[in-house]
């Protein structure tokens, strides 16, 4: 698989299917793993980082499961390509920054990705569409077993998997669920919900990770505690919390539909109208408007476009994606024009 092949391809997690996919965009699990005795990436010499990469690459090559995936060595990629992988959530923003024997292994469906030499030697991630952490666990557990067969992990029976930051020790597992909560935001109940989440030692962040601001009514909720609970306990705790939030968002949507249907239809249709007719548009504005269009699809107010296409647009309108589609570097002004063009063509179909 080449990097450009991803462009013509919808990531599995964006398909808009899976349990509760009207409210839950995706479910993600990641495991942090390190090689025994090898200094962590930030504390490694160039030579040591290189040997980490080689060890991981060799381990991946020996596994039937991972061998068929594609490895991208970041030194071989330009800035746009790296940004492209970040926008697709295949690697972190941090991972794209410095290049010191960093790599990412990606499977064709973009369900599995394995970052090498990020904060830890290995950060394996599995993304599923909709509310489906248990399936993500089934997949990531196999990936982890495959790597553990070949690599000797830094592990203590008492403290579990040993990670660069003590906040990840234990299971090394972080579960994140991406939620779309426009009704809770519109009715101003979201702050109460977020405050309750923070008290339970979960964190919330926005769609693209940077900063804490949530654009487009997207919220990513993750567990903080990784030690002292088993993987299944952690998943169950997240599931219980997410279920409550889904319930609250559903109720809010219902209330809005019953009491403010006219206002809602107006807001959604106007957003759709702007997207269909704009000639210059920023990614921020697009995300806000698409959020309402997505809600319109979920509520049956907009019928001529389906959720999957809206999801795809969220991905395609980002800077690196636009530049990959045009196959050249674009300034921010040029992107705003190309973005509007792309949206008009996709929505008029």
């Amino acid at each position: 698989m080449r990097l450009n092949d991803l462009l013509t391809h919808t990531s599995e997690w964006l398909k808009g299917t899976g349990p509760h996919s009207d409210i839950v965009i995706s479910s993600r699990l990641r495991l942090a793993r390190n090689i025994d005795k090898q200094p962590f990436p930030h504390w490694s010499s160039k030579k040591q980082s290189k040997s980490t990469l080689e060890a991981c690459r060799e381990a991946a090559g020996k596994s039937d499961l991972i061998r068929k995936m594609t490895i991208f060595v970041l030194e071989d990629l330009d800035t746009v390509d790296k940004q492209f992988l970040v926008e697709r959530h295949l690697m972190s923003y941090e991972h794209a920054q410095k290049t010191n024997s960093k790599a990412v292994i990606v499977d064709e469906d973009e369900v599995v990705s394995v970052m090498i030499n990020e904060e830890d030697h290995i950060r394996a991630q599995v993304m599923q569409s909709g509310f489906n952490l248990p399936e993500a666990w089934n997949v990531i557990n196999k990936v982890d077993d495959a790597l553990a067969k070949e690599l000797n992990y830094a592990f203590s029976p008492e403290w579990g998997y040993l990670t660069a930051c003590p906040t990840n020790a234990g299971t090394g597992m972080r579960g994140s669920v991406m939620l779309h909560l426009p009704a809770l935001v519109m009715t101003r109940q979201i702050n109460q919900v977020l405050a309750a989440i923070a008290k339970l030692s979960f964190t919330t962040r926005g769609l693209y990770g940077e900063g804490t601001q949530a654009t487009g009514n997207f919220f990513q909720i993750s567990n903080q505690v990784s030690l002292g609970q088993s993987e299944t306990d952690i998943i169950q705790n997240i599931n219980n919390l997410i279920r409550q939030i889904i319930e609250q968002e559903s109720q809010c949507r219902e209330t809005l539909m019953n009491s403010n249907r006219g206002m809602l239809e107006d807001k959604i249709s106007r957003s759709f109208g702007i997207l269909k007719s704009a000639h210059i548009i920023t990614s921020q504005e697009t995300t806000e408007l698409l959020s309402l269009v997505r809600l319109g699809c979920d509520l049956g107010i907009i019928k001529d476009i389906n959720r999957r296409h809206v999801n795809e647009l969220f991905l395609l309108i980002q800077p690196a994606h636009l530049q990959k589609i045009e196959n050249k570097k674009l300034t921010s002004q040029e992107r705003d024009i190309k973005r509007a063009e792309l949206i008009r063509s996709k929505l008029s179909k």
């Binding site: 557990n141 982890d144 077993d145 553990a148 067969k149 000797n152 992990y153 592990f155 203590s156 029976p157 008492e158 403290w159 579990g160 003590p166 906040t167 020790a169 234990g170 299971t171 597992m173 030692s201 505690v225 990784s226 030690l227 002292g228 609970q229 088993s230 993987e231 952690i234």
Partner: peptide, 18 residues
């Protein structure tokens, strides 16, 4: 670790060999 996680005893998965 106890302060961060509320516990300092791992009870999850272990690498296959151990």
């Amino acid at each position: 670790l106890k302060r961060i996680h509320g516990s300092n005893l791992h009870c999850g998965k272990a690498p296959g060999s151990r």
